[in-house]
Amino acid sequence: MEELHLLVSSAGGEVCATITGSRKAPDAKYFIGSGKAEEVKLEVEMHHADMVVFNHSLSAAQQRNLEEKLGVSVMDRTGLILDIFSQRAVSHEGKLQVEMAKLDYFSSRLAGLWTHLERQRGGIGVRGGMGESQLEIDQRLIGDRRRSLQAALDKFQRQSQTQRRARTKGSRLNIALVGYTNAGKSTLFNHLTSATAYAADQLFATLDTTTRKVYVEGAGQVVISDTVGFIRELPHQLVAAFRATLEETVHADVLLHVVDAASDVRLDQIDEVNKVLKEIEADNVHQVLVWNKIDLTAHEAGIERDEHGRIARIYVSAKTGAGMTDLREALVELVETQTPQWQKDKKKIEDDWSDDPRFRQVD
């Protein structure tokens, strides 16, 4: 519930009341049951609330029924996160990705958005064909817009792949910062690279991937990328729309998994990040935990190793700079022990060709 409060605040809302409850199974009509719906309605009237936010995903029918019952707008967790992403998107690519996700989300809710959707109307072109309903017209327009957005996103993906190949021509280690939203990834990124990426104490402060080359003494140049933060029940629409952005994670040689060491639910947050990494097929990339914000805990800066002597955790504070020397020493060790992805791909291609009977080695 604390996270839901942060989400509402990040979207620009103000929480005036919190209502909790439990059921063995969601109610088909209201999700929360008729009695609880009456309780919510009384709170809405008492506080003159403009909107009710649910910490769960609602079906289109449940959302419509609740709005009729409560007399105010109703938003579920998915819609709330989409709204925050819509406000945070800055780059042209980010705006296209958010629009794609919103089209996927609202396409199933068309029937309840306007009362005129089932009217039949004739005409030609964009107004609709003979006997075509307004709902069918809107569905067709959404389909056309989706195809246009997908073409633009495919173009951005090709550009990203070209830029990624250019960065990996040299023997540089590619490192991606991943983690739960508001874990301090952007602050850590700025500290490592002397960049000025936007960093704030809010959820989803960063949507666009930022990449920098940085020289680390003893390791040479490495490539570090700051990625979008993850969250529990991250909408599938966003994962699909931001796949091009998240590919920096898939193609990285090492993931620095930034954890909010001061959070009481940090272990749950680690699990949620790993779920998303598995969904985008980045769970096989070597991962090192970076416990950030130790200035708010009793942890001391330093490196913790596993039973094999490999780096398991690094305790730092990106805000105060504590442990950053240890982090740079860990980067040197990672450069020495990790084979860059471009070398793995090159070896795989060579192995595939060597097994081909048509292949002949030429000096």
Rank of each mutant, 00 (worst) to 15 (best):
F106Y: 15
E279I: 07
F359R: 06
R145E: 15
D355Q: 13
L70I: 04
D50S: 14
L6M: 13
L203P: 07
D104S: 10
Q139E: 15
A111W: 14
Q139G: 15
A282P: 02
L267P: 00
K155V: 09
G12W: 01
T209R: 00
H48I: 08
K29Y: 06
D83K: 12
F106G: 03
L238F: 07
H92T: 09
E247W: 01
S86W: 03
G13D: 09
M130R: 14
E45Y: 04
V52A: 14
E45F: 05
M46P: 00
S22F: 06
I224A: 03
K36W: 11
G94I: 07
V8E: 03
L70S: 01
Q150W: 02
H5W: 04
I137V: 15
A261F: 04
L80H: 01
A219N: 07
V258D: 08
T210I: 14
I349T: 10
L117E: 12
T227C: 06
L4M: 15
R310T: 04
H5R: 14
Y30L: 09
I231K: 04
L289R: 09
L203K: 07
G122K: 08
E217K: 12
T78S: 15
S133K: 14
R358F: 14
H299N: 13
V216A: 08
L70T: 01
R305W: 06
L192G: 11
D352G: 12
A61W: 04
R127L: 15
A301T: 08
N174E: 05
H56A: 10
A241Q: 07
